[in-house]
Amino acid sequence: MEEVKVYSRASSIPKNPYIGFCPGCMHSTTFKVIAEVLDELGIVDKTIECNGVGCSGLGLGYVYLDNVFCAHGRACAVATGIKRTNPDNIVFTYQGDGDGGSIGIAETIYAANRGENITMILINNGTYGMTGGQMAPTTLVGQKATTAPWGRNPEEHGYPVHIAELLDSLTAPAYIARVAMNSVQNVRKAKACIKKAFQYQMEGKGFSYVEVMSNCPTNWGMSPLETLEYMEEHTLKEFKLGEIRAK
């Protein structure tokens, strides 16, 4: 019988990455999907990754691409500088929700508003993973965090920030989608959206944004399987999935 290869490791994910993620963390799923998309589009050798600070920054040692370690929240500004001076490269940012949605919200909004021809991938895991589970802009009402020990209280902390919808209030962005990594079906949809976001950039259409609903077993204090349930029952009810804009 002839052997047919049906699956192989994406070219920019090495066998023994220098850095990894906690078991069951969807950061690694997301990176895998991005790396597959880059292979499928044939753009690996043109791509430059701008990493945020947080667990997203671990991508520096997980994905083998040319990359920049950006200061906390500044990845969209850094990507702007690269893309404007090297328009032939494909430039994307990979940021956490604290990174791109709190400390870097100005950089995010203004890169989107200028319609920078870059792709932004934002991981929405409802927490500050790297620093140990503090409250993030996306933490759900009632969801506990080390800095909201009784859960997020709207009167004190306000409500979760919907970054995709915030960007949707701007005229310039070309592509805005929210996807999730919690099921096979959702991972497939996520991959299609991430691919589309990069295609938008290749076609010079402008700012493309994909918000990836993710988990953090370590700081949610759950097993990876429990996080899948939690996402289905809670997070995905607050943050609706789908293509929000595709110009």
């Binding site: 950006c70 500004a77 990507a79 500088g81 950089e107 909004i109």
Partner: peptide, 26 residues
């Protein structure tokens, strides 16, 4: 060349960080 008015000094200097990383005099 490229001129950009950043949304703040923080953004501007980080744009320069990116452009410098790409090898452009900035």
């Amino acid at each position: 060349g490229v001129y950009l008015q950043g949304e703040s000094e923080v953004a501007s200097v980080n744009m320069v960080y990116g452009a410098a990383g790409g090898g452009t005099r900035c």
